[in-house]
Design a binder for these strands. Structure first.
Lengths: 263, 263
DNA sequence: ATACGGAGTTACACATTGCGCAACAAGAGA
DNA sequence: TCTCTTGTTGCGCAATGTGTAACTCCGTAT
């Protein structure tokens, strides 16, 4: 009607809303979901029936409640296979996780955020929170800073629409200061984020290059600040760099070639 | 909607069609997809725009073509986290892959098929085909037979609607013969599939139990027939059983409890 | 047992919404 | 420059999706 001039298809949009509402991993009932989306339960019922028929949601026959379905794994699997990055990176991430005992992540640029596409949990961790599929800001994560550092300046400008939100006391909110760090990162080869995203969380990250020399992803090693002391970050950073280089090689990157950033 | 007796929502269904059309990992254009779905390209354009807005598809700015988007990884990640099985199983699958050097899979029941939810590639493999997200029949795979064996008889009847398709010369197509094997599997604790799904592919599989004692998944070890000789399958089967038991323990299964199959 | 309340599905009727058409804009070759 | 292909956007129609409400189940309390 008035606000529908975005050209999007209402029922599809609502269906995606349903999927996202279910993405907490819990089971939800029809009425409950209807309320959450502000649509009548009849509508929710029909949308869910459609999604269930296509296996994007699964209906628990016992409780009659819905959760996300295995069809999504199929689609996501294809999405990942398309990238091919994850398959190539996996064994190297595992090595890196084994030698550092910390959590290792692989991340790519998604819009103006960092998308985590794979993770190997550190052996030292009790609780195993998966970051896969989660997005975080660019300016306050090690992965994000790597991805930013190797971007063209105009692109970077588009990504970094002010203000840079402060998530902890350490978050860099000045564009100038951030640019200085990015220059450092390009020179040194890896990035650090010291309690910039979460208090008590330190991360280092290094670039992964594709066949054409462009940076396509970032590998990170992260853990609690009490284990990842500043003086050890150098060693971990170099390990991340080695892993990044190894993945790059598998992606067809030939050493010595330079990413000049041209198309 | 005279002939639409299934009560499903057309545009949502078409949106899912689009996602599936894109699930080959390739990029596709609007017109092309419209043709494939037998809808006008204008319709395809609007549906794709909606999906793109929600990050389920990604539009390559250079070519204006679509591929699956990273939003799917988010949803699928949640779907997997919801199950929790994958997270718990991962390290054990890795051990199993390391000791056997063959490819290890984790699979669950999805409708009347086997859905592969995780995989660790064997170190001996050159090419690394991912089965994650792929579905296979129940009656001719080791995973499938494990899942069948621990199902209630009436459920099993529903799953095994005849005819049992023969995919190779070794595929079991007789229901009686299959039932006999399932009894064997329950007694022995693991299943074998000897070139029943693909020529030259042998697999063994063992059950994974949930906290209530019911079988929730299957772990398999598979490889080429020339490496996985019949006389070695016993040893590999026992290793799969151990891995299955270890995962079961992590899932809260207490040894000695019996799955009596009642609710 | 019976009554009650909550959850989910379905028939129905209306008008919102999504669809096809066709004109338009933007590239890519020739 | 002309042409062919690909994608987007008004427009008008009606098919489609939606809300209302009645109905069925089920579980729980009376």
């Amino acid at each position: 009607m008035r606000n529908k001039r975005d050209g999007s298809v209402q029922s599809v949009s609502r269906a995606v809303d349903l999927l996202e509402a279910l993405s907490d991993g819990e089971e939800h009932g029809v009425t409950e979901l209807g309320k959450q989306l502000r649509v009548h339960k009849a509508t929710a019922s029909r949308l869910l029936a459609t999604l269930a028929q296509r296996r994007l949601v699964y209906r628990n026959p016992a409780t009659d409640k819905y959760r996300l379905g295995l069809g999504l794994i199929h689609l996501a699997g294809s999405a990942m296979a398309g990238i091919d990055l994850i398959g190539q990176a996996r064994p190297i991430l595992e090595d890196l996780a084994a030698t550092t005992s910390e959590t290792v992540n692989l991340a790519v640029l998604d819009g103006n955020q960092v998308m985590h596409v794979d993770q190997i949990a550190g052996t030292r961790n009790i609780v195993n929170v998966s970051w896969v599929g989660r997005r975080t800001p660019l300016h306050c994560t090690a992965n994000g800073k790597v991805l930013l550092a190797f971007l063209e300046a105009p692109e970077r400008d588009r990504m970094l629409a002010p203000p840079l939100e402060a998530l902890t006391g350490n978050t860099i909110t000045s564009r100038r200061k951030l640019e200085r760090q990015l220059t450092e990162i390009r020179g040194r080869g890896y990035a650090r984020a010291i309690e910039e995203l979460e208090d008590g969380l330190n991360v280092v990250a290094a670039p992964v290059r594709g066949a054409d020399g462009g940076v396509v992803a970032a590998v990170s090693v992260g853990g609690p600040a009490f284990r990842m002391r500043p003086r050890e970050l150098g060693k971990l950073g170099r390990m991340a760099m080695d892993a990044g280089a190894a993945i790059s090689r598998r992606m067809g990157f030939v050493k010595g070639r330079r990413s000049n950033g041209s198309t």
